[in-house]
């Protein structure tokens, strides 16, 4: 599904990747651990076409990250960035705009409210603006968007850093149980406790 073959990248005179090989199979769950500043997030950005590599080969589902395929590739990836950089708008209008661009498979009202309940979010939050949300709320809204978009590949960058412990357990178990290809960058030990996850230490 995801292939990095001898990838080289230098940024600001600093070597980020020198001959990196990294593969993820379909429906595999991979946890990446390692010190900050070694290019974990860069890995995600390359897949999304936000950064380009100097040398090597990157492919997604057999397709190179090029102009031709980029829209198709982005449509298959749900990315949760570390700071959940949602643009500052009322949560509800932001969600509406997202659905408008990505028709949802499951449009049932109950599905919608079940998910809100599951993430311990309530309707009031929909009328707040993104800036007013706390870090934990933003993370949960981000995951809420991910659950509804239901894209086949998930790239999660520190998805549980601001969520409390009970919630963390519930969410990680649920995510790992999904039939999706999932790559997670996290310092949280809660992910490691699960046997299905493959750990990559950098």
């Amino acid at each position: 599904m995801i292939k990095f073959e001898s990838v080289y990248l230098r940024k600001n005179d600093k070597e980020i990747f020198s001959g990196l090989n990294f593969f993820v199979q379909k429906n595999e769950k991979v946890l990446i651990q390692g010190k900050s500043g070694i290019g974990k997030t860069t890995l995600f950005k390359i897949l999304l076409g936000f950064e380009s590599i100097d040398k090597g080969k990157v492919s997604f589902n057999g397709k190179n990250i090029t102009k031709e395929y980029i829209a198709e590739i982005r449509h298959q990836i749900f990315y949760l960035s570390q700071d959940i950089d949602l643009k500052n708008e009322r949560v509800k209008s932001l969600l509406d705009e997202i659905w408008e661009q990505n028709p949802l498979k499951n449009q049932h009202k109950t599905h919608f409210s079940d998910l809100l309940n599951f993430l311990d979010l309530n309707d009031i939050i929909l009328n707040q603006s993104v800036k007013e949300l706390s870090g934990g709320e933003r993370q949960r809204i981000g995951l809420f968007i991910g659950f509804l978009l239901d894209r086949p590949v998930w790239l999660l960058d520190e998805p549980t850093s601001a969520i409390d412990d009970t919630m963390k357990k519930k969410i990680t178990n649920y995510i790992i149980g999904l039939e999706k290809t999932i790559v997670i960058i996290s310092h949280d030990d809660v992910w490691k406790k699960n046997n299905t996850i493959k750990i990559k230490r950098w």
Partner: peptide
């Protein structure tokens, strides 16, 4: 100034125009 947010919109909307709108 807002590049992260712009890129994040791009990943959610998958449309250049939609991400540029604001």
């Amino acid at each position: 100034k807002d590049e992260k947010t712009y890129l994040y919109s791009l990943s959610l909307f998958c449309s250049h125009i939609q991400a540029l709108k604001p």
